[in-house]
């Protein structure tokens, strides 16, 4: 089951990332993973948060979009990411972007994948013994 990623439009100016993060933090939300894609004029802040609704309220004045992405839990060892990517490659699933982070427990790591065919990717990952996480899992795993 896919998880929900929030993307926020950031103008390319000093302080916008700080202000956005501050607004989320002030709402009592924990950002568990984030990446920023930047262009000349703007950035796209993508994040996995502990509370989606609270975050959307905190960012009412910012453009925010929900996107289903795939999150996979893996061992924090060399070759773990390669294994996942190989599964997707074999089935011709295209990856739009990816970011990874280590978990709160030693030896844990997570990878967030935005792919062109979310359902298919989930299916084949599960078939190959790498189940994807759900929003519920994220809460459980990440809100410790």
């Amino acid at each position: 089951m896919a998880i929900t990623q929030l993307s926020a439009f950031l103008e390319n100016a000093p302080g916008t990332l700080c202000d956005t993060v501050a607004a989320i933090t002030d709402a009592g939300v924990n950002i568990r993973a984030l990446s920023v894609a930047d262009t000349k004029d703007f950035g796209i802040l993508r994040m996995i948060v502990s509370d989606i609704e609270k975050t959307k309220t905190a960012l009412a004045d910012t453009m925010v979009k929900e996107t289903p992405v795939i999150a996979v839990r893996m061992n924090d060892t060399a070759g773990a990411l390669k294994k996942i990517l190989n599964i997707l490659k074999a089935e011709g699933v295209n990856i739009e972007y990816v970011y990874a982070f280590t978990g709160s427990e030693l030896g844990d790591a997570y990878v967030v994948l935005r792919v062109d065919e979310t359902e298919k990717a989930e299916e084949i990952l599960a078939k190959n013994g790498t189940p994807t996480l759900s929003d519920e899992d994220i809460k459980q795993f990440l809100n410790k």
Binding site: S7, A37, I44
Partner: peptide, 15 residues
């Protein structure tokens, strides 16, 4: 000004 309808999480869409 961009609009929520055209905002995307993908840089390639925005570009």
């Amino acid at each position: 000004e961009s609009t929520p309808e055209m905002f995307s999480d993908k840089v390639s869409d925005m570009q």
